[in-house]
Amino acid sequence: MSDVLLQIKNLYAGIAEDEKEIIKGLNLEIKAGEIHAVMGPNGAGKSTLSYVLTGKPDYEVTSGEVFFNDKDLLRLAPNERACEGLFLSMQYPVAITGVTTNNFLKHAINAQRKYKGLPELDAAEFLKLIRGAAKEFNISSEMLKREINVGFSGGEKKRLEILQLSLLQPKLAILDEADSGLDIDALRTVAEGVNKWHNQNNALLIITHHLDLLNYIRPDFVHIYADGHIVKSGSMQLAEDLEANGYKNYLEE
């Protein structure tokens, strides 16, 4: 097995209804152990990339290939992609009335265990697992009893996303604007959680439009994403240049 976790080859995709391509000829390779940051201005289609990779039904791939862990990712259902180890921390985590956070997490963990042929966790095992992890992210047992993301603050939502990352232990995590709406403390908690999870066997794709999070989670590669593809790749230095000069140099090309 190669150590390439994700390989995107000449990908074209967009929203199915609109028949308009948003991703236009994207190429990207992510190896185990790496942290990549995709930076781009608002409206460049960064979130589209995360949705196409995770298989959101409204999005359609018109051409190109994506391999994840040597598997043809685009052939897998969204839940299969998750079970194969792809995780998306959403920009706007969805509130679900009537489903407690505990219950949601239990369903998610057991669905992934079932996929891997592992026995499902019973109530006691689950509680033990969740209590330890929740403490780390400053998530109270009260919060776990509340309906998931219903009335949660921006910080609570993002901390919960990272709790899920830590519980599900994916191979590749996509953080879509994980820093939006966070104060410094929450940002640190999120970053610490991500850094703790990250190791040589997994990888991270950070989608963001500014530098904040990257100061806490240092990427190995920074890609500037505009008009549906990567216009320039580089190191952290590239991100810092962007912060100083803005995107306009890259958009005018």
């Binding site: 969204p78 839940n79 998750a82 079970c83 959403m90 969805v94 369903h107 998610a108 899920q164």
Partner: peptide
């Protein structure tokens, strides 16, 4: 059912059928 909710659950590994069932029960 809310498509966004179904997708959020799928993105965590829960199958579409199971997600629908959970959402109906929650409803």
């Amino acid at each position: 059912l809310d498509k966004e909710q179904i997708f959020y659950m799928q993105a965590r590994g829960i199958s579409e059928d199971e997600a629908r069932k959970i959402l109906v029960d929650a409803y």
